[in-house]
C-alpha cells in the first residue's frame, strides 16, 4: 500500500510539473511585455526591473528561467493583480474557500439524494416509476447549466422572490473570516446576529448549489441504478438471501458498497466538467469564488490573475482526482488484487 501511495504522489508531482511547464511557455507567449505577464507590474521602475530580472533570471537560458519561475511560483509569489494591485496569492486565498463551500454543498446534495434514488430506481418493480426516474435524470443531464441557473434565479429569485440570487451573504452582515467557509464562520461568529447570518448564508447557497448539483446528481442516479441492477443478480446477493438476511440489510451491507465503487470512479472522471460548471454557476450567481474571479480576470486581461487562477484550479483538480483514485482503491479490495498482480 505504501508503494502504491508513493506512486500516486509521484504521479501528482509529475503532472504538476508538466502543468507548470505549460504555464511557463504560455506566459512567454502572452501578447504583452514579458515582465508584465510575470509580475503584473504595468510600468516598473528600473530598480524593480532589475529585481524582476534577477528573480526570474531573464538573462539566462530558458531552462534556468523555468527553474526560477518554478521557484517564484512555488514560494507563493504569483505577482500582483494588474487591476486591484493586490498580491494574487492573497486574492486567491480569499476566493478559494467560497468555491470549495459551493462545490462541497453541491456534491453532498448530489450524493445524498442521488444514491438513495438510484437504489430505489433499481429496486422498484413498477415500470412507470423506473421510466419516470430515468426520464427525469436524462432531462437533468441534458439541460445546459447556464440556462438552468438563469431560469431558477428568474423563477425562485425574481418572480417568486423566495431566494436571493446573487452573492454569498447579505452585505449587511459583518462576519469575521475564520475558516473562510461562510456557513461555518457564521456559526462561529459571536455577533448577536450570528443565527440570522447563518440562515441568510444558507438561503444564498441554495440556488447556486442546486444548479451545480443537477448534473452530478443525474449521473450518480444513473450509475447507481445500473450498478445496483447488475449487482442484485450476482450469486453473492442470492447467497445472502439464502442466508435469510433481510432485504434492507442485503442492500445496505452487500449491494451498496459494491455499487458505490463504479459511482466513485465516475465522480473522479466528472471532476473537470464539475469544475467548469462551477465556474459558470459562480458567474451567474455572482458567487465570490475562484471561477468568477478568474472569469473577471480574463475579461480584464489581468494576466497574473489568469495564471494564478488556472494554476490553482488545475492543481486542485489533479489532486482531487488522484485522491479519489486512492479512496477508490482503499474502498475496493478487488482493485487491490489487481495492484498486487501488477507489482
Amino acid at each position: 500500500m505504501a508503494r502504491y501511495l508513493i506512486r500516486r504522489l509521484n504521479l501528482f508531482l509529475a503532472t504538476s510539473l508538466v502543468l507548470f511547464l505549460v504555464m511557463f511557455i504560455v506566459t512567454s507567449k502572452f501578447p504583452v511585455e514579458h515582465t508584465f505577464a510575470l509580475t503584473g507590474l504595468q510600468s516598473p521602475t528600473s530598480q524593480e526591473l532589475a529585481q524582476i530580472e534577477s528573480d526570474y533570471q531573464l538573462d539566462s537560458s530558458q531552462l534556468h528561467q523555468f527553474f526560477a519561475y518554478l521557484q517564484q511560483r512555488l514560494s507563493g509569489n504569483l505577482g500582483i493583480s494588474a487591476t486591484s494591485q493586490n498580491p494574487v496569492i492573497d486574492e486567491l486565498t480569499a476566493v478559494l474557500p467560497a468555491s470549495f463551500e459551493l462545490g462541497i454543498v453541491a456534491g453532498l446534495i448530489a450524493l445524498v439524494l442521488g444514491l438513495p434514488l438510484g437504489v430505489l430506481a433499481s429496486l422498484s418493480k413498477h415500470k412507470i416509476t423506473q421510466h419516470t426516474i430515468m426520464a427525469i435524470t436524462l432531462t437533468g443531464y441534458s439541460i445546459p447549466v447556464f440556462w438552468l441557473g438563469l431560469s431558477l434565479s428568474l423563477w425562485f429569485g425574481v418572480q417568486l422572490g423566495w431566494l436571493p440570487i446573487s452573492g454569498q451573504i447579505n452585505l449587511l452582515y459583518d462576519i469575521r473570516p475564520v475558516s473562510g467557509f461562510l456557513l461555518i464562520d457564521t456559526l462561529l461568529s459571536d455577533s448577536q446576529y450570528a443565527t440570522s447570518a447563518f440562515i441568510d448564508a444558507l438561503l444564498h447557497i441554495i440556488l447556486p448549489a442546486v444548479t451545480l448539483a443537477v448534473l452530478p446528481f443525474t449521473v450518480v442516479v444513473r450509475i447507481t441504478r445500473a450498478a445496483m441492477i447488475a449487482i442484485m443478480e450476482q450469486t453473492y446477493i442470492k447467497a445472502a438471501e439464502a442466508r435469510g438476511l433481510h432485504t434492507s440489510i442485503i442492500v445496505l451491507r452487500h449491494a451498496l458498497p459494491n455499487a458505490f465503487i463504479p459511482v466513485l470512479k465516475n465522480l473522479g472522471l466528472m471532476l473537470g466538467a464539475f469544475a467548469s460548471y462551477a465556474m459558470v454557476v459562480e458567474v451567474i450567481f455572482s458567487w465570490p469564488g475562484v471561477g468568477a474571479w478568474l472569469v473577471s480576470g480574463i475579461y480584464q486581461r489581468d494576466y497574473t490573475v489568469i495564471q494564478g487562477g488556472i494554476l490553482a484550479v488545475a492543481l486542485i483538480i489533479i489532486f482531487l482526482s488522484i485522491l479519489i483514485e486512492v479512496i477508490h482503491t482503499a474502498m475496493n479490495p478487488l482493485s487491490r488484487k489487481e495492484l498486487y498482480a501488477a507489482n
Binding site: 439464502a242 432485504t247 474502498m331 479490495p333 478487488l334
Partner: peptide, 24 residues
C-alpha cells in the same frame, strides 16, 4: 419464506468464491 431460509433451510452454492461478497 425468507425467515424459513435463514433458520430451517440452507443452501451451498455451486461456485463458492462468487457466493461471497468480494468487497467485505
Amino acid at each position: 419464506r425468507r425467515v424459513l431460509m435463514g433458520s430451517e433451510m440452507a443452501m451451498i452454492f455451486q461456485d463458492p468464491i462468487s457466493s461471497l461478497d468480494p468487497a467485505i
